[in-house]
Design a protein around this nucleic acid. Structure first.
Lengths: 261, 261
DNA sequence: CTTAACTCTGTACTGTGTACGAAGTAGAGG
DNA sequence: CCTCTACTTCGTACACAGTACAGAGTTAAG
């Protein structure tokens, strides 16, 4: 069964975190040479998270991987929360710069595909909230490139923001489903098919769960399950959703231009 | 700063979890009368989560709220993960049954609005993954009602599934942003405006972060921030996104019917 | 009345983030 | 060169988590 929860992490003054994100050096160092750099810590943390989940990123494990005592990490990073922020911006740095020659549909599609790939390379990105933490250079650049895709196509500024947020949100949501499913297969040792094989007879023994009570859910659920095995389902929703959203944006643009002229 | 992570929870045999979800009584009881019911535990857990976050739902705290020792909860629930599953289905039970007389656009809009409201009543629903756990009666009913909204409008079964998943995914994503932002305001004690007041001068002191490097991001970000204060931003994206998605579905339906005749 | 199933509880283990204080290192000022 | 002091590193300790385990008490079945 599933059930995954999210941990809170403090707010606090943004100063130090922003300085770390932008690599501000700080005052000249007097004491012993540091063994590591902040970048070392971030990279070690990303390696751990890639191989498992964000939960694998514990202060103790990152320290162990670096051959250092846990507490010494606090020299490079104020705490675990800020480390996660640094990891996010680091990962955003992997996004390619979209081809500026593309039309808006192709550009948005490329952005969505790149983001989809990024999430599959770094699934932990979807286990972490982004609000207020996207202040690093690579996250800024990401937003800039996204806006460039919809610049000059007839949307006002507020709509441009909404359009790219809508597309990236679609990718986030569908990629999350895709990766949750994959992770579940890994941790439970059961594929979706195997899991259903086990669950189906239990459900069958419960009168209230009979197909007669849920005719559409039974029919459509089965059809969807057969059309694409469940592992590919989110990828289908991604493509389907992107097509719908792009069509919807096109409708808006058309309405705009017709009203104007 | 932000940074929120998600915990893993085991897979395991679905049998017991499904039985709990559907309220299968189990063999006749011989020992002392139980002080509680599984429903008591679930309701106490929901109360705790509503008042805070999903992290407030610890075995110890739920037990304390019920005036019982922590370990005795394991009589009613196999573990924390299964408790979360039960909470999800319990919450889905609050969703109203949509008016069957509505057209598909109004029906999908009503479903989206109801879900948006549910997420704002129970923000912890967005801190928990749903994959494979939606096997309870109320979650089944939710899916059934969603499909009813798009039944008979010219989509095949696979597209019906994709359409409702797209809409509910949109609500999930935008509601998550909305609630993450609200939670951040609560935990940091800073409104978005106050936080930006503090962050802006720090950013201003970093040459690499100059607006000249991110012209669109600066212009559009400012415009979006002024148009609606950040707290309302996700709500705007929700409405904007829903309009686009519905238009996109309409385009698909129209194309279908034109091809047919 | 005996027995066995069931509930409930206290204790204990492992693992988390990180506060605190001590120890050691190396550049700055004399 | 010596001293001072900022700085890095580390060991210990605390509060809190989920839950395994074993024992004690309770009640229905035989």
């Amino acid at each position: 069964m599933s059930g995954v929860s999210t941990e809170e992490n403090g707010g606090g003054d943004p100063r130090r975190a922003i300085e770390l994100l932008w690599g501000v050096p700080g005052p000249p160092r007097r004491g012993p040479k540091p063994k590591l750099t902040t970048a070392d810590v971030v990279e070690a943390a990303v390696t751990l998270a890639d191989a498992d989940t964000i939960d694998a990123v514990t202060i103790r494990r990152v320290a162990e991987q670096l051959g250092v005592s846990p507490m010494s990490l606090y020299t490079y990073v104020p705490g675990r929360a800020e480390l996660l922020d640094l990891m996010i911006d680091h990962a955003h740095g992997e996004l390619p710069v979209p081809d500026p020659g593309l039309g808006w549909r192709d550009a948005l599609t490329a952005i969505a595909d790149d983001l989809w790939a990024l999430f599959h390379r770094h699934p932990w990105l979807l286990q972490v909230t982004t609000t207020r933490s996207a202040l690093g250079p690579h996250s800024f650049a990401k937003y800039e490139h996204e806006l460039r895709a919809v610049e000059g196509i007839g949307l006002d500024d507020v709509e441009m923001d909404a359009a790219v947020t809508l597309v990236t949100g679609l990718v986030r949501g569908t990629a999350r489903s895709s990766l949750d499913a994959a992770r579940l297969v890994r941790t439970s040792g059961l594929t979706d098919a195997q899991w259903w094989e086990r669950a189906a007879p239990v459900l069958a023994g419960i009168p209230a769960a009979a197909a007669a009570h849920y005719p559409l859910a039974s029919r459509v659920g089965q059809a969807a399950g057969e059309a694409h095995n469940a592992a590919e389902d989110p990828a289908y929703i991604f493509r389907f959703g992107l097509a719908r959203v792009l069509d919807g944006i096109e409708t808006l643009i058309t309405a705009r231009s017709e009203r104007r002229g």
